[in-house]
Design a protein around this nucleic acid. Structure first.
Lengths: 242, 242
DNA sequence: CGGATTCTTGAGAGCTGTCAATCGTTGTGG
DNA sequence: CCACAACGATTGACAGCTCTCAAGAATCCG
């Protein structure tokens, strides 16, 4: 569920034959570059001279508003492409949340490859369309959903690995502030919501930055906004809404 | 500020030479089709068999969530293309707000034209990128801004004509519900906010569905979230925040 | 161990949503 | 031309949710 130009997730469904190069394959020969946690790969406003493919680790795409508000446009994981744009300058800052490994390609060379291989252009185009519908969904999530729904959706997003499979054990490398700035909330509300989910037995903390989903169904129905069935407090049910 | 695949606004900056056909020129020979206000051009889930270019009037792109919530993804004006997608089915319903005139092209023919003229593909690609950054801005607008800021931004959007020029006289053909579902608010809050803007002398109603901007600067600073300078109540200033 | 950072928790206020009543306009039919 | 219904818009009262401000707890790192 990455946003827009932020990250173009490569197709993983179809096995790639040698005669049908994939978008990510153009990065294959590039050397690995490593960035420490907290360091920036590029800054908003920089000359958009390179594209990167994430090989390992997690990053965040950050935008700063004129009034100082900070917005996280998306999180990036292995397989994502970043820096795809037809603009002259990057529209957001990319920062490493964990130590990361990337492969870099100059924009010039990337565009050459795209030009040389029309299939790549089709792939890119198709990926852009997918990203846009994802952006639409994110817009809906942010504008019309409660804190519970937002956090539930976020946890579900984190529960999917890079291949789309669903795991019960979540690795949450980002801080509460990152989550808040991604979901359009404050860190306090994020914290309170997670506490509520924990108290209701839907999730349990297994470490400082990891947790486990105990009731995946409950989490899913929360994420969809099915608030009718009081999921909170199996006994006592102070919050009964029926 | 149209969203994503919803509407692809054609380039208007550069004059188009005959040897450099524009995206919209492929529609030029198509006959005009007219739709009454309130009627639908196509429905969410329909086979995405056609593309349309808006010639006259205003439309809305609507999505319905599983729980019944209604979301307006964008408004469409003359010059906009709609139905652009690589998906099999339309992702939203298009309804005419006013009487509209459209030109229709089958998707097959549109794709043929795109294939035949690589420049068109470039234009389309570039337009998609623009729309995605617009979608990003819309996401920010919805997630992190107050009712005042949302409405101010909406009015500014409506104050721009199809060529990007700014007018003081606004034509607002859509209902409060449309605005509410676009901005992620309720009709009551929309109404209250507009009343507040009117009382503060920033806008004034000139008709049932039209208004005039009296203080464009104030509207702009509101839209940007500059809430520090108490714009409300020129005298009395109950709302002083300094 | 001590400081810095992050996270949690609490109390209170403000904003927006909900419910409900009223007003104004539009359109229809007598 | 007026009465009336239908619809949209406005306004009010109230509740609930989220933010703000603040303090304290937990964790990390030197």
């Amino acid at each position: 569920m990455n946003l827009q130009v932020v990250a173009i997730r490569d197709a993983r469904e179809a096995p790639i034959t040698l005669s049908q190069p994939s978008l990510s394959s153009v990065f294959d020969r590039q050397p690995l570059e490593r960035f420490d946690a907290g360091s920036a790969v590029f800054w908003e406003g920089d000359d958009a001279a390179h594209l990167f493919q994430v090989t390992d680790g997690m990053l965040r795409a950050v935008r700063l508003l004129s009034d100082g508000r900070r917005i996280i446009v998306g999180f990036l994981r292995p397989g994502d492409l970043l820096g795809v744009s037809l603009k002259e300058r990057y529209l957001y800052t990319i920062e490493a949340i964990t130590p990361v490994a990337l492969r870099r390609l100059s924009r010039r060379r990337f565009e050459e490859e795209i030009r040389r291989q029309p299939q790549l252009r089709d792939q890119l185009f198709s990926r852009l369309c997918d990203e846009m519908t994802a952006a639409q969904d994110q817009t809906v999530l942010l504008s019309r959903r409660s804190a519970d729904e937002k956090v539930a959706n976020f946890l579900l997003m984190m529960s999917r690995d890079e291949f789309g499979n669903c795991t019960r054990i979540l690795d949450i490398p980002m801080t509460r502030l990152d989550m808040a700035d991604y979901l359009g909330m404050t860190i306090e509300t994020v914290s309170r919501t997670i506490t509520k989910l924990t108290n209701s037995g839907i999730i349990t903390a297994t470490g400082r930055r990891s947790m486990m989903v105990l009731k995946m169904d409950a989490l899913r129905s929360l994420a969809d906004g099915d608030n009718g069935e009081n999921w909170l407090l199996p006994t006592g049910s102070r919050y009964a809404t029926a």
